[in-house]
């Protein structure tokens, strides 16, 4: 115990935390994944009629992702949003002696809608969204061994945004309930991978938090922004959840 405590207090560099972050980012390495987080969208509109569309590309050490988002405030203090997310990855299963054997791929999408209310808080805007969506992940484990899982996600998402003429900052906590309602799985998939899928089947639905944010520069009416989301949850090797998504995007804002 003392050793652990020492590690925490060791220096301002906090190696443990750096390791933890590295772990979160790398945890999904060379594991096929059945869930990958989209960005936590933080609409910047503060009045009726404002809205934005955004397109981003992002990724994690394993996946390449695309995020598309549109939001609009039909009423004062109320916003609706629509998010579409695509993810994919592939890697070669390399046998130490014989070289690459199979190409593994994961790909999937998620389409979701949310509605929420916002109001000024401190120097920015606070909002709360509730959303629901569904999607599908297809994992090919090589030689056409495929696992198709459908997924449904419900979320509650408090956010905080700050903006001025040239700057955007948004942060959000997404509390997720992730459910895998059905799946179709080739039994030839390696037992270790089947085990992950069976664990999903057994333990679904999952409740977990995700933390996300974005920071951007605004050139009216465009914003160029960088986004990050981290899944605070189950280790990838047990559940096949990709742990993160980092990327760049462009938004068009409607005043």
């Amino acid at each position: 115990m003392r050793f652990r405590a020492d590690l925490f207090n060791f220096s301002p560099m906090r190696p443990f935390q750096i390791l933890l972050l590295a772990y979160l980012l790398l945890a999904a390495g060379c594991v096929q994944y059945h869930y990958s987080p989209n960005f936590v969208q933080t609409p910047y509109g503060v009045k009726k009629g404002s809205g934005q569309v955004n397109a981003s590309v992002g990724g994690s050490p394993v996946a390449l992702n695309g995020d598309f988002h549109a939001s609009y405030s039909p009423i004062k203090h109320g916003t609706v949003m629509l998010n579409y997310f695509r993810t994919r990855s592939s890697f070669e299963d390399t046998n130490f002696f014989t070289g690459p054997t199979y190409t593994h791929t994961s790909k999937g999408y998620l389409l979701e809608a949310a509605a929420g209310g916002y109001m000024p808080i401190a120097f920015g805007t606070g909002a709360m969204y509730v959303g629901w969506g569904q999607g599908k992940m297809r994992n090919d484990y090589g030689i056409e061994r495929i696992a198709d899982l459908r997924l449904q996600r419900f979320f509650v998402q408090p956010t905080f945004t700050f903006k001025n003429d040239w700057f955007r900052l948004g942060m959000g906590l997404r509390l997720v309930r992730l459910n895998f309602p059905s799946g179709s799985i080739d039994y030839r998939i390696e037992p270790a991978d089947i085990e992950i899928i069976q664990r999903l089947e057994r333990e679904s639905p999952f409740w977990f938090p995700e933390f996300g944010g974005n920071i951007g520069v605004h050139f009216k009416p465009f914003t160029i922004s960088a986004s990050l989301v981290i899944v605070g949850t189950k280790p990838a090797f047990l559940y096949g959840f990709d742990g993160s998504n980092i990327g760049l995007g462009i938004s068009y804002e409607l005043e």
Binding site: A115, W132, R177, N179, S182, S184, D186, R188
Partner: peptide, 22 residues
Amino acid sequence: LCSLFALFLLLGACKSDFNYYY
């Protein structure tokens, strides 16, 4: 809206139903 979603959650089937085939 919130209550609607809550209802949806409750009604939405929870048990996963995976079909394994060889």
